[in-house]
Simulated scan of single mutants.
Amino acid sequence: MYAYCDQPVRHLDSGSRFVLHAMRVWVDAVQHRTCPPRALMIAMPQRELVPVIGDLHGMMLRLHSHGSTPMPFGELKHPAITEGEAMMLSLWAMIAADEPEHSRASIEALVSETAASPMQAAMVRAAACLSAVGLAPVGRMAVGTASGAGE
């Protein structure tokens, strides 16, 4: 988690930037009292990503409804990764790396016991779909930007 906190969003790999943006879109939709799945659909016009929408919505809904701690997310264009986002990006990287024991322990620290299994299953399905289209949310910093290149 600490590898991500307060880091620039542009330093994330494309898959992690994608899930970060999707989570922010979901939170923004809830704050504006609009439909989160519709907002996600608009935010990702690629047809191959449509199956991910339901799992992203389910995961965020469980985090929102069954969360054990407040999870602050940044505004859509916020340039840095917030603490809540850092926790989620770490979790996404564990899921993408197929570390079920570690990811399960992290999920159980974030949500109620009844929400943990469905949340993990949704994230595993979403990560598999994202991986299939080259967007695995592994969290690594983008090549050539970690040292400040391109700033």
Rank of each mutant, 00 (worst) to 15 (best):
M1E: 11
W26F: 15
F18I: 02
M141C: 09
G148E: 05
A128D: 11
A3D: 13
Q31K: 08
H64K: 09
I42N: 05
G15S: 08
A122D: 14
A86N: 10
G67R: 08
L49Y: 12
I107C: 09
W26V: 00
A126W: 11
G67P: 13
E75N: 04
S103N: 07
C5Y: 15
V25C: 15
G144D: 13
L49T: 02
M141E: 13
S131R: 15
D6M: 12
I107D: 12
W92G: 06
A122S: 14
F18M: 10
S90K: 08
A80H: 14
A22L: 05
F73S: 12
H21I: 03
Y2V: 01
L56P: 01
T145Q: 11
M41C: 08
T114M: 08
H64F: 06
A128G: 13
I53P: 00
P79C: 01
T82P: 02
S103R: 07
R10I: 10
M94E: 14
E48F: 00
L56S: 01
Q31S: 04
A122C: 09
V27L: 01
Y4S: 07
R24H: 06
E83D: 10
V9A: 15
Y2C: 00
W26K: 01
A136D: 12
G74S: 13
V25D: 03
Q46R: 10
V138L: 08
R62G: 15
M119K: 05
I107V: 15
A109Y: 09
D28I: 03
E85Y: 05
R140S: 09
A29M: 01
L130M: 10
M23Y: 04
C35M: 00
G139F: 15
